[in-house]
Amino acid sequence: MRHHRALRFLHDFSSRLRFARITVVALSLTPMLLSGCAIMHHTQVGEIDSQAVLKGRRFEILISETGVNFDEAARVGKALTQHQQTRDDIGGVAGIISLFQMGPRTGNQVFSPMYADKAFDLIRKECPRGVVSGLVSIRETAKYPVVSGEIVKIIGYCRET
């Protein structure tokens, strides 16, 4: 009897320990999952007028668009269901969609590639009458599960004349 109780106690204890370990891991990963992951794709530095950069006013233009990762969405969809036929269907649809999305990618796919064109006018607005120099163009991604922020960041310096 005591032997059985001891075994049951050990079994319960090891289950609770396993649950505690899973909870700790999940809690530690949650901030990482919620904060996203920053990925740098391209950076280019332009010509530098030292006077403009050292004595001028720094400005930053940030433009972003929501990107979607259809493969990740399919994986999440499959994980949310236990029905095998539904999983197969999701996999089939994801496969068919991927045939329509062939091509090189940087970050996740977006539904309009023109979102960064307004940076051209925004630079002019930041420095309408001065000298713009030290332009740094950055293409980066803030990655979250399934979606992402596809970001174009332009840093520059304006020296008023």
Binding site: E47, D49, V93, V110, A116, A119, V131
Partner: peptide, 25 residues
């Protein structure tokens, strides 16, 4: 449903890079 999803999935783009060139002083 499949055709709609294909249509939605087929309108995707990838913006690889944007470079702002120097503005001549």
């Amino acid at each position: 449903l499949g055709a709609t999803l294909m249509w939605l999935g087929g309108c995707t783009h990838a913006l690889h890079m944007v470079h702002e060139g120097d503005l001549s002083p």
